[in-house]
């Protein structure tokens, strides 16, 4: 059950895992997400789907260690199993149900930041398979945080890289590259998809609004069930309350209230910090990690 076939340490805090999950792989589409749980007292963590293999019946997830639950997840080894994995959740990206003929007339620009590279990949892969042109901007703080570059290049028309510290690609952030491509080089994009930290999606959306490019973002707020039951994932889009889990996770980037989303994301900051502190104290390396799990 839910066996982990591959674990890859991408960089300091970023991990990639390939997991057996037949129910998810049979039906998942770009834009959807899943929920995992580690340990009998584990939290339900929503994660984006980075890749899926319908024949092998595996999904690939990429996650960043941000708290105790993701730290615990990162400790699992190849051959071990997740306690739970469920999905696919959320609505697929709108383009999945659009006329491919119409789509082929479009030029897509993807802007992905940090682990946001993960959910962008299956979208670009799907679109390129359907003959739609996609340019991708991969943005990260530094070179070691860029992953899946080769895979992305194999499906995208063009891949542009920016790093905050200039250690790889252009020095700058994703929006700098958007402006360069559109304003300086005069490239035309019909649609933009921006996925990454909320602050990055906010600024990308501000930028594309200015440039007049319709933009979709993928929200990843606090969630429990992921099926519309709890309402923890409430966000405001165009002045209306939406449940990110069932109404999204993708929304019109020009209409999302990002500041509110960021405030809501910090709701358990104190509890998380305290839990992480305790977790690290108990993980001095002298005791078996299984004890904590």
């Amino acid at each position: 059950m839910y066996r982990i076939l591959k674990v890859q340490h991408l960089s300091e805090k970023n991990w990639l895992m390939e997991i057996e999950a037949p129910y998810i792989t049979r039906r998942c589409q770009p834009g959807q997400f899943l929920i995992v749980r580690t340990g009998e007292m584990g939290e339900r963590i929503p994660l984006t789907i980075c890749d899926y293999d319908r024949e092998k019946e595996t999904v690939t997830i990429v996650f960043q260690v941000v708290g105790v639950s993701t730290a615990r997840l990162s400790e699992l080894k190849e051959g071990e199993c997740l306690t739970d994995i469920v999905g696919p959740l959320g609505r697929p990206s709108d383009f999945v149900n659009e006329d491919p003929e119409e789509l082929r007339k479009m030029h897509y620009l993807f802007v992905c930041g940090g682990v946001g590279i993960a959910p962008v990949y299956p979208q670009v892969k799907w679109l390129s398979r359907h003959g739609v042109k996609c340019d991708v901007i991969m943005a990260a703080r530094s070179r070691d945080l860029i992953f899946y570059e080769e895979q992305m290049r194999s499906v995208a028309e063009n891949v542009f890289i920016t790093t905050d510290d200039g250690s790889y690609g252009m020095k700058g952030v994703g929006t700098d590259m958007v402006r360069k491509l559109v304003s300086e080089e005069g490239r035309h994009y019909d649609r933009c998809v921006a996925i990454g930290p909320v602050i990055m999606m906010k600024f990308t959306s501000l930028c594309t609004k200015e440039l007049g490019i319709p933009t979709v973002v993928s929200m990843n707020p606090i969630m429990i069930d992921g099926t519309g039951m709890c309402g923890a994932c409430r966000i405001v889009v165009d002045g209306k309350v939406k449940f990110a889990c069932v109404d999204g996770p993708e929304f019109d980037g020009h209409l999302v209230d990002y500041d509110l989303a960021m405030k809501r994301a910090r709701q358990y900051k104190e509890e998380e910090t305290a839990a992480m502190h305790e977790y690290e104290e108990h993980h001095c390396g002298c005791c078996d990690r299984k004890e904590a799990a």
Partner: peptide, 18 residues
């Protein structure tokens, strides 16, 4: 939508199921 407003479903699910 303020922080600290729960649905009973969320509050109870956190406490009972989780």
């Amino acid at each position: 939508i303020a922080n600290g407003v729960y649905s009973a479903n969320e509050f109870l699910t956190r406490n009972n199921l989780m």
